[in-house]
């Protein structure tokens, strides 16, 4: 049994921190974009046009029922074939955005349907159109109501972001692998990477708690 030497970790900390930086960048971008995607898909999912609604629900069903890794492969190998030569990071962001956009869309759709009809009626009776009503009255309330669930999805996103290392995105997990290829100490570095994820996770949970407290609609 080899001895464990965590000092290597501290010597190579900058590699890990660099990776952590990209993880944070990746996750922040994907989080924000996934909410945009979620709003769009939530709206098309309740569209009065049956083909639009059905197509959306089918799309949601497929992307909910397949692993993120598979979807990442699709984008990583598939996009170049349709002429889109994107860097691994952008591909990773796209993959994460779509995957979590789908999860958040389901949550948001439930939230939208949960806003009482009186809100629609009051807004429409003032003369606002359907889309103006959605934009100004319904969606803001829906987002606040489902923010805990969205928050959970953001935490999941942080952890699942480790998968993009498999499509060569230089985030924390891949950085750990880089360090390992030079020092041959997988246990120490993966352990350290795990610890860093844990810390970031804890920070994210803390931030989310504060955000939820601020935006919750106490009725």
């Amino acid at each position: 049994m080899q001895g464990l030497e965590f000092s290597v970790v501290f010597e190579n900390m900058n590699i890990l921190l660099q990776g952590m930086f990209w993880t944070v960048v990746l996750c922040s971008s994907a989080s924000l974009l996934s909410i945009v995607v979620a709003v769009v898909l939530a709206m098309t999912g309740i569209s009065k046009l049956k083909p639009v609604r059905s197509a959306t629900l089918f799309f949601l069903w497929v992307f909910r029922g397949t692993p993120l890794l598979l979807q990442l492969f699709l984008f990583y190998f598939g996009l170049p074939q349709v002429g889109l030569y994107l860097s691994p990071i952008i591909t990773g962001i796209i993959g994460l955005t779509l995957h979590f956009g789908v999860y958040n869309a389901d949550v948001l759709r439930a939230g939208i349907l949960g806003v009482e009809t009186g809100q629609h009626e009051a807004s429409r009776s003032l003369g606002l159109s359907y889309f103006q009503t959605m934009r100004k009255v319904i969606i803001p309330q829906a987002l606040r109501n489902v923010s805990p669930a969205v928050g959970n999805n953001l935490i999941a996103l942080l952890k699942e972001s480790s998968l993009v290392s498999i499509i060569t995105v230089p985030e924390l997990t891949l950085s750990a692998q880089r360090a390992i290829s030079e020092t041959f100490r997988p246990f120490e570095f993966y352990f350290a990477a795990g610890a860093l994820y844990y810390v970031v996770n804890w920070g994210l949970e803390f931030i989310l708690q504060r955000v939820e407290a601020r935006t919750a609609l106490t009725r």
Partner: peptide
């Protein structure tokens, strides 16, 4: 019709039994 009804509604005010104020 959508455009018509939105315009028409701007000329009328409605007050509801359950207020329906925008909580946010």
């Amino acid at each position: 019709f959508e455009k018509h009804i939105n315009r028409v509604r701007q000329e009328m005010g409605m007050v509801f039994q359950h207020f329906n104020l925008f909580p946010h």
